[in-house]
Design a protein around this nucleic acid. Structure first.
Lengths: 341, 341
DNA sequence: CTGTTAGCGCCTTCAG
DNA sequence: CTGAAGGCGCTAACAG
């Protein structure tokens, strides 16, 4: 491992000069810089993350995390990942502040961003609301050179430092594949999705639909339903859809209120194979009890964790992340989680 | 974040004394120690991993990794995880040396361990051969207080620092569950496993068998076959078994030579649903082409990575790991990996 | 038994 | 434009 001291000796200059040469701090003669850089390249010099972090300490780096308040189980998991990251980065002198704001309330989220910046955040992780004011504010963050990471969401037309999310289209596609396997390739299905005004959900829905169109000619997708943002209404809608589609024997359910879906299916008294998205406690229980057939997970904790770590790598090692980090989705059967005999 | 300096000031002693008190180095009066420790507890002091690592540098910590030479695809993946860990721990002043030895050759492995220790390894990660001489050597490592991590294998009666592996019984159980789903709960099956003298494989096989017994009364498990350690022989055996069991329409294949299994199934010309373990390039291709139905993965790269990181956490933060770290297994359908339209 | 000090590698500040 | 020095938190070696 070569250090700036090695380079300094080799170049016959002081470490200070090497530091200036290698970090574009100016105040250095072009010739000296060139010579030092070439030595650094020759010795394959890499900055030591640990030493840098120790020195960084004085900078008091701070990451702001802008989340919703009334978070569902999915975001609780995301949050768990974020908290895990917090403990890991603390030793590196990087702190984290969480700002929670009302869901579907752009004004509140805007306010949170402003506050974060005012309080000295050096970077932002955000689950953005798709609203012109927010978009505009994010553009301004770019102008202010505050890197921000988009978490668990799709926002087009915004150039962010990095984005961390699942591949929504893929997860819908996988739901299709899983349905093919579970159904033996034939049957009648209903699919429920949360607010399709969110691009991610729409992509998932489209992935699912196009899979069935391409690969499952014998599965009739009788309806695709957008779920309301309420547990009881969701229950009622699932129930109604089941009543009005008596041949349906398969359901794909992607919704915040998993209990609603589970109960509605159960209370129908019909033999229905179902695929749920995400692993709420209800889903988990229902899976183990055989009330639902399978689940598709998107590792929310990993998403939260990675979003923070992207910034961590940047601060500690100047790593420029890929524009998009995809966290893989997984299929879960009861056999993955039930207790073994 | 409180530092030893804070504690020193508070206790009216020097940082040296605090260091001795907090790290059981002796040479300190019991009263001083007690007082300092209580202050540390009150201030919720945690050692700073970064600073410790920087200081650790002088110790030149070294992790030895004892692997087989003729590694299959599974161990290539394990190795990739290990190399990933290498780059992460380098900045912390911890190096890694890989010792490769002939598979199924205890003498050679023994020699590798000896050499690793002679060359100053402070810890060992090993994929152990289940042989009395190796076991004895591992016991001696314990006496020498060299922590060692067992990787991707089960060894009873050896108290190790930590073990990292998949849950073999669970992955067999999952194969059963997947077969249930794929087959619709009825059919005739064959199951192939690698050397059952390895405890892990035996556990997986038992997990699979007991699942079918408990939950799939209509699936006839016609035979369980142990695969030889050769590609051509494996092919021949699968072929023979298929011939002598003409009603078989389901196969579970866990073997090193995945190509053998795939080809034998393909060449039989029969309509066979199959579940493979692990994701070799052959398996991946066959999955995408629909020649096999599903795969069960055990994240070998994660296993390699975690094995190293367990020691890393110990060296940098004195973290005592759990005796066993289970890396989850996952189900893979073609829809997980095929290209999206 | 305890205090002091010199690093670990890097960054920043202050002199020159 | 460049060098020297101090400090980030912890450890180890040496003095007392």
């Amino acid at each position: 491992m070569t250090t700036i001291k090695d380079i300094a000796e080799m170049a016959g200059v002081s470490v200070g000069t090497v530091d200036r040469a290698l970090n574009n701090r100016g105040r250095i003669s072009p010739e000296a810089k060139k010579r030092i850089v070439s030595i650094a390249v020759k010795l394959n010099y890499r900055k030591n993350k640990v030493a840098k972090s120790l020195a960084n300490r004085k900078l008091n780096l701070k990451i702001a995390v802008v989340l919703h308040i009334h978070s569902n189980e999915f975001f609780s998991e995301v949050f768990r990942g974020i908290e895990r990251a917090r403990t890991e980065i603390a030793d590196f002198g990087i702190s984290m502040e969480v700002y929670r704001c009302k869901e579907f309330n752009p004004r509140d989220q805007l306010h949170s961003i402003d506050r974060a910046i005012a309080e000295g955040a050096n970077a932002v992780v955000i689950v953005p609301i798709n609203h012109p004011d927010i978009i505009k504010r994010l553009h301004r963050l770019n102008e202010e050179h505050i890197p921000f990471v988009l978490l668990a969401s799709v926002l087009e037309d915004v150039k962010c430092f990095s984005a961390v999310r699942c591949d929504y289209a893929r997860s819908g596609w996988m739901a299709g594949g899983l349905l093919r396997v579970i159904s033996g390739g034939a049957g009648n299905a209903l699919a429920f999705f949360p607010s399709l005004s969110m691009l991610g959900h729409r992509q998932r829905m489209q992935g699912f639909r196009s899979y069935l169109e391409k690969h499952c000619p014998k599965i009739t997708l009788e309806n695709i339903i957008e779920l309301p943002n309420d547990s009881f209404d969701s229950y009622r809608i699932v129930q109604e859809e089941l009543s009005s589609h008596p041949q349906v024997n398969h359901i794909v359910y992607n919704g915040v209120y998993t209990e609603a879906g589970i109960k509605a299916i159960e209370n129908s008294g019909r033999q229905i194979q179902s695929i749920f998205f995400d692993l709420s406690p209800f889903t988990k229980q229902a899976l183990i009890e055989g009330k639902i057939s399978a689940a598709i997970l998107q590792q929310p904790d990993q998403q939260g964790y990675r979003a923070i770590m992207v910034l961590f790598d940047y601060f500690t090692a100047n790593v420029i992340p890929p524009e998009l980090t995809i966290v893989e989705s997984y299929i879960l059967l009861k056999e993955n989680i039930e207790e073994l005999p």
